[in-house]
Amino acid sequence: MSPVKMTARGVNVYYGDNHALRDVSVDILDKTVTAFIGPSGCGKSTFLRCLNRMNDTIPTARVEGSITLDGQDIHDPAVDPVQLRARVGMVFQKPNPFPKSIYDNVAYGPRIHGLARDRAELDAIVERALTRAALWNEVKDRLSSPGTGLSGGQQQRLCIARAIATSPEVLLMDEPCSALDPIATAQIEELIDELRQTYSLVIVTHSMQQAARVSQKTAFFHMGQLVEQGDTTKIFTNPSDRRTQDYITGRFG
């Protein structure tokens, strides 16, 4: 078994009066893909945002409970949220490229964290990130055109390239393939599998088949609660909870 990379204990999230997450506890293992599944609005994105303190940026959001990264509390005042987000990277549900060139989108992180000594090294990082995100061939001749001018699926892959360019230790992906065609989806799944050798990954997906294909652990959320978590094979062949069963087999809850 891989060591634990992140832990969450008794996490509650409120948006104003809306109690969006109730008492969630889960371990995120290193070198493992963990899938979060569950009906729309059940709190998957909310929980994902807890893991790199993205909810800090939402004024109405209040997070309770403890979350650790390598044993350290991420809410500790000594933790700089910007540094945290470099270690715990994120690909959002909606592609959000910066209004900059394709090149600059990917080079942004490596630049601010000083990961390249010169232009040649930066070029290499950008090419490698774009290649792994299955986008290089489509954009290599127009690296200086704006990222926002790409198609939806290309923008999503650009955001994946941006997220992996800084080599985060944990990568959070919120429905990374929802706008991708089957070929690009397969390439991203291949990338996820490759990244798993080195990183810890958490992926939110609405595709049961995708969750089953890419993850080793699965957690099922329902109405703000974490209903069931365990080995992916177990969850998809013989879940313990009736709500999980109904959800994954496509039944009325």
């Binding site: 998809f236 062949t237 013989n238 069963q245």
Partner: peptide
């Protein structure tokens, strides 16, 4: 239909 769980069984 890619059946799951008891449907697959």
């Amino acid at each position: 239909r890619q059946p799951m769980a008891q449907d697959l069984r």
